[in-house]
Simulated scan of single mutants.
Amino acid sequence: MKTAIVTGAASGIGRAIALRLVKEGWQVAALDIDEAALATLPHEMALWDFACDLADEASVKSAVEQAGFDRLDLLVNNGGPADPFSGPIETMTLADWDHWIEPHLTGTFLMVRECAPALRAARGAVVNMASTRAIQSQPQTYGYAAAKGGVVALTHALAVGMGPDVRVNAIAPGWIDTVGEPLSARDHLQHPAGRVGTPDDIAEAVLYLAGAGFVTGQVLPVDGGMTRRMIYEE
Rank of each mutant, 00 (worst) to 15 (best):
M111R: 02
A82Y: 06
Y232R: 07
Q218G: 00
G68K: 09
A63S: 11
G197Q: 09
H99K: 14
T155F: 06
L220I: 05
H99P: 00
M162E: 15
A205S: 09
P81R: 07
I17R: 04
A55D: 01
S86Y: 04
G225M: 11
I33K: 05
D70Y: 03
Q27Y: 02
A63F: 14
S137Y: 13
V215S: 02
A130Q: 03
E234R: 08
S131F: 07
W100N: 05
H156Q: 12
K148F: 04
F85P: 12
V22W: 00
R133V: 07
A159W: 02
A134S: 13
P103T: 03
L54N: 10
I202D: 04
S62H: 12
G14R: 00
V206T: 01
E65F: 09
V160Q: 12
P221V: 14
I89N: 02
A157P: 03
P42F: 07
F69R: 10
G161A: 14
G194K: 15
M1Q: 04
A58M: 12
A170F: 07
R195W: 14
M226D: 06
I17Y: 03
T108S: 15
V151M: 06
A51N: 08
A153L: 10
M92H: 09
D200V: 06
I33G: 01
N78L: 10
A125C: 15
H191N: 13
V160R: 10
T216V: 10
E102G: 13
S62Q: 15
G211R: 13
M45E: 01
M230P: 00
M162I: 10
V6N: 07
A82W: 07
T93L: 09
A147T: 05
A205N: 00
L74F: 01
A172S: 07
H43W: 03
G150Q: 02
P173E: 00
A159T: 02
V112L: 11
P103I: 13
G8S: 14
G224Y: 06
R186W: 10
G14P: 04
V168D: 08
